[in-house]
């Protein structure tokens, strides 16, 4: 950007002279105040707590950390959390895309209300969603009873219940990432493809899907990460049997209730590390697919 201001000599500069230029000159005032205020606030509320978690975790030593993480109960909780989050995020990716398509492209009266409803899981406290989902999917509940009677399947207090809770919290994440992409897609592209003789299915597979696929993966990733960390919605419906229906977040909570801070810290660090690794993997996969798509 070249503006007339860029060529003027700086009126004020930072007392500490950096070898590199820290900040572009601007006549707009307030940078020192707003920058230092933001930085101090972030340092106190975000950096310091994260730092203490890492330091306290490393005080346990590698062997201490590994001993906590490779405890059978912890490993089973990891397995349960990962599997249920995976199923829930896949379900969300599928149905979230359909819902986004419905909201953007299908004519329907009163669609605005449905559109607003999508964000309900973000607006409702997790404890509230937790108890209501439990009541609905419990053996005596509306849906729970139906499944028990007709399919002999128990939903609440089994891993299926955990998946239901995770799907609930993930809904807005997929719909809100896929929706805007569908919205901004040019219908000309599809018309051209159709007029060139492609059938509708081909247009969907070769024109629409490649465009929205990266956003579906992003939505999947967000839903997956949210499901892995979710606590409030899940603990009511999960049943919370150690080794069976105990998610990792609950295990950390239980350890804290027992004042076993060291174990809680180790498991929490393992959980954070695992989810960051998975997110990294998914991001790599996404950049690989989008390269492939744009390369074609």
């Amino acid at each position: 950007m070249t503006r007339f201001t860029d060529h003027m000599p700086p009126k004020f500069s930072f007392k500490i002279k950096f070898k590199f230029k820290f900040k572009e000159y601007s006549v707009i005032p307030g940078f020192p105040l707003s920058f230092s205020y933001s930085l101090i606030y972030l340092a106190l509320f975000v950096i310091l707590p994260l730092f203490v978690l890492i330091v306290k975790g490393s005080e346990l030593g590698l062997s201490g950390l590994l001993r906590e993480i490779f405890d059978l109960r912890t490993l089973l909780s990891f397995k349960l959390s990962l599997l249920t989050a995976l199923v829930a995020a896949l379900t969300n990716a599928c149905f979230g895309t359909i819902v986004a398509w419905f909201l953007v492209r299908t004519p329907f009266p009163g669609k605005k209300i449905f559109d607003a409803l999508i964000d309900l899981p973000l607006a409702l406290p997790t404890a509230v969603s937790g108890i209501v989902l439990t009541v609905i999917y419990a053996p005596s509940g509306v849906i729970g009873n139906f499944f028990l009677k007709h399919f002999q399947i128990k939903i609440a207090f089994t891993p299926l219940g955990i998946i239901v809770a995770m799907i609930f919290v993930g809904i807005p994440l997929v719909v809100r990432t896929v929706g805007p992409v569908l919205m901004s897609m040019e219908s000309e592209l599809e018309e051209v493809a159709l007029s060139l003789g492609a059938n509708k299915w081909q247009v969907f597979i070769k024109v629409i899907l490649p465009t929205i696929f990266p956003s579906i993966i992003t939505g999947f990733t967000l839903a997956f990460a949210r499901a892995l960390g979710e606590f409030g919605t899940i603990i009511f419906i999960a049943g919370n049997m150690p080794m069976k229906t105990e998610i990792t977040a609950l295990l950390v909570y239980t350890k804290l209730e027992q004042h076993d801070v060291a174990s809680a810290t180790a498991i929490a660090l393992g959980m954070l590390l695992l989810s960051f690794l998975l997110l990294l993997l998914i991001n790599l996969f996404q950049s690989w697919t989008s390269k492939k798509v744009t390369g074609v």
């Binding site: 900040k23 940078f31 920058f35 994260l50 606590f231 409030g232 929490a268």
Partner: peptide, 27 residues
């Protein structure tokens, strides 16, 4: 409103509380 070094880092720091599970925030 300003161009300075470390903007991306600040943006990441702002988002961190959303990426950290609530239980771990409490911990």
């Amino acid at each position: 409103k300003f161009q300075f070094r470390g903007r991306e880092l600040l943006l990441t720091l702002i988002d961190l509380p959303l990426a950290i599970p609530p239980i771990i925030s409490g911990l």
